[in-house]
Design a protein around this nucleic acid. Structure first.
Lengths: 231, 231
DNA sequence: TACTAAATGTCGTGG
DNA sequence: CCACGACGTTTAGTA
């Protein structure tokens, strides 16, 4: 990994055209040749970048650039597309290289898959007498998160989201439409379950006869802990 | 901006729980206190991070950590949520600070807004006799990209995407459903216009009687140039 | 390889 | 400030 602090201007041309005027920035060159241009603020997203696979070529600036004060010209080309990042460096304030080695990678926990697992284990959260049929119930257009039955034996498809928005309701609607064409399964009703449901998503869901359930992740995890201790 | 290369382990706890085992990484501390943890590969996204507003506190490691070889303990807390990033530093290989100043910011061009503008100016691209009613035609559930009329005076709603996928068809379908309830407007048909339309999106659109049009950005821009030169 | 859904998404815009 | 859609989305998982 190479770290360069430099006064530079940057131009990107590819899926869009973008320009960064002359200013002091961090240029981060990774081992795979990818380049990130960071300012001293904003979020984790760089101002500009080139994703791997790509190659960095350091060349001499053109006459006009030299007159304007450019001392180095970096051209980063993507290997598979026409995407190109051009960095015109006026002054290098810092330049260091470091050997990092391969990263062992990230271990995650607590996302949608976990919510689904917890809800499947505590399916009566959705209502008394509810029973799990199966998780990831496969249909022709993809897996339904949870298929279960209510106390009366009626089929219910559950779509789980961390944040419930309109596209999640659309997704569940497509599943319900398909499943209700299957005479062995129909009638199937829907439950839209999420830690947080946006008002417009709730309105759309209710308009389509889909019940909305707000999930309490802490409570679900809490019950899970208690049960774990029992065994 | 502070750049630290260190052997460290990292734990994030907030919207999810994540852990990075001990390895050598770049720790980037921005002027606003935000922290990025980068490896020497992957994309522009850090392995872990904390977005502003947040505060970085450097403290002494606990006894157990000291025994394990931890020399510094960084705790980054988000100002508004319970999100927390903990960095356990075993060895610092590089540490430097740099004054960057405020970045003048990015200038962009060539995205959906531009496609919409070009298509509105050249609405007959969609068919002979077509005329523009207006861009960003407002409905109760949001703006329709373009509303126009065909040669016979029938209303047509156009949804524009750079890449046409299923959710874009769903979006247009919602608009059409709503607009067709308005007796002043109905009947309204739909056109799904994009530089590239995915097969499944095309199938869904045609299934719903929505016409698909592939946009040639270069051609639209080319005509635009020609017209510009005429005036 | 192609396609879809998730994301600690982030970012801008309009109400 | 909230809600929504775009994004050079990126990324992960699956058929």
């Amino acid at each position: 990994m190479r770290l360069v602090i430099a006064r530079c201007s940057v131009d990107y041309d590819g899926r869009l055209t973008a320009h960064l005027p002359l200013a002091t920035r961090l240029l981060l060159v990774k081992a795979d040749g990818s380049v990130l241009v960071h300012s001293d603020g904003g979020s984790y997203k760089p101002l500009n970048w080139m994703s791997p696979p790509c190659t960095l070529e350091v060349g001499e600036p053109a006459e006009a650039d030299v007159v304007a004060g450019v001392t180095q010209l970096w051209t980063v080309r993507h290997a598979k597309t026409e995407d190109r990042l051009v960095v015109r460096i006026h002054e290098v304030l810092h330049d260091s290289a470091h050997e990092l080695g391969v990263d062992p990678g990230l271990v995650k926990d607590g996302v949608e898959a976990h919510l689904q697992q917890l809800l499947a284990e505590q399916i009566t959260t959705l209502g008394d007498g509810y029973s799990l049929v199966r998780r990831e119930y496969m249909t022709a257009i993809g897996p339904v998160d949870i298929l279960c039955r209510d106390g009366a034996g009626a089929s219910i498809a559950v779509e789980i989201k961390r944040r419930g928005e309109i596209d999640g309701v659309e997704q569940l609607t497509r599943y319900l439409e398909l499943m209700n064409r299957d005479p062995h399964l129909a009638p199937v009703t829907g439950i839209f379950a999420a830690q947080e449901i946006k008002p417009q998503a709730r309105t759309l869901a209710q308009d389509r006869g889909i019940r909305c359930v707000t999930l309490d992740y802490a409570a679900l995890r809490g019950h899970d802990d208690v049960e774990s201790r029992l065994f």
